[in-house]
């Protein structure tokens, strides 16, 4: 190709006929300096969505802090003092703490071993970690109840193993998130080198894990714990359909007969979720790649 075929016409058609009349020095002008400004449409969108998202919270507060006539904190005190609330919350805490501990105790060593020695299992584990998306709680509960329910040959529900059933279910529901949180943390530190350095100093595998690995992935462990805990605290489907009277199940029932107290307790439940998620967001900011949203069907 020749240079001229490219260097041809151009100027007349690409430039407008805005001829400079005045001499060039006279062209200097002043403009208002525009800093980075939020576009108007963005302000409108963000404001409207803020209204949509805050209105239900406001309405809940209005109902929860009222006795039908005027403002009062009575429903909240009633709710907090209600034995049913206390029992169900205690039960929820019990399962959430146990699920969290189980998740940490099982997932952390496994993820460490996978990272260190069983890289080939990675794809299997990744597959398993999206499986709970395909099998949301409503499906899992059908499987669990037909396998371990009242009418099944292995009736865990009616045995002293009943708590294990719900914990096992919660463990599965939270697995994708706990695994990813811990795995991200493990990948961020060089597990192999750390382990080799530690064993060259004479530490065994377990000692290395507890004294070297665990401290270096502590943020990942915290976010895994928060994910497991908040998920278990708010879980309704498994608990309701397998018959565990946890806090969300109690919340459903109490609202039917004591709406103001119910709404007050809804606020309590919001606060619990908030605390968990905001703590998670704070941790996630310090560990890039951490997922804040559970993102599964609820």
């Amino acid at each position: 190709m020749s240079g001229t075929s490219i260097a041809g016409e151009a100027t007349e058609e690409t430039l407008p006929a805005m001829i400079v009349a005045a001499e060039k020095a006279g062209k200097a002008r002043r403009r208002v300096n525009r800093g980075p400004r939020v576009p108007v449409w963005a302000i409108v969108v963000l404001t409207l969505s803020a209204v949509y998202f805050l209105l239900p919270l406001y309405a809940t507060a209005v109902y929860g802090f009222s006795n039908g006539k005027h403002f009062t904190l009575q429903p909240l005190w009633d709710g907090l003092g209600d034995p049913g609330f206390q029992t169900s919350l205690r039960l929820s805490l019990f399962y959430s703490v146990l699920t969290t501990l189980l998740a940490l105790a099982v997932v952390a060593p496994t993820a460490y071993m996978v990272e260190l020695r069983f890289q080939r299992l990675r794809s299997t584990i990744e597959f398993l970690s999206i499986l709970p998306f395909v099998i949301p709680p409503i499906i899992l509960v059908v499987g669990l109840s037909s396998m371990y329910g009242i009418k099944s040959p292995v009736n865990l529900l009616a045995s002293s193993w009943a708590p294990v059933l719900l914990m096992g279910g919660y463990f599965i529901l939270t697995l994708p998130f706990t695994f990813r949180a811990i795995d991200n943390a493990l990948r961020a530190v060089d597990v192999r080198t750390l382990t080799e350095a530690s064993s060259s100093l004479g530490a065994g595998t377990i000692r290395t894990f507890m004294k070297v690995i665990v401290p270096s992935i502590s943020l990942g462990l915290v976010s895994a714990a928060l994910l497991a805990f908040t998920t278990a605290m708010g879980e309704f489907t498994l608990a309701a359909l397998l018959g565990y009277p946890t806090f969300p199940v109690y919340l459903l029932n109490v609202n039917g007969w004591q709406p103001h107290m119910g709404e007050a307790l809804v606020l309590v439940s919001f606060l619990i979720t908030w605390a968990g998620v905001i703590a998670l967001a704070a941790v996630a900011r310090r560990t890039p790649g951490t997922q804040v949203v559970r993102g599964g069907p609820m």
Binding site: T14, P16, A17, V20, K24, K27, N33
Partner: peptide, 24 residues
């Protein structure tokens, strides 16, 4: 970016206020 003051001139044509997609 638009200058606070001054002019950009191409072949004698003032393009200071033209958007980039018209400058060729």
């Amino acid at each position: 970016e638009s200058p606070d003051s001054g002019a950009v001139i191409v072949d004698g044509v003032d393009v200071t206020d033209l958007p980039p997609n018209k400058r060729g």
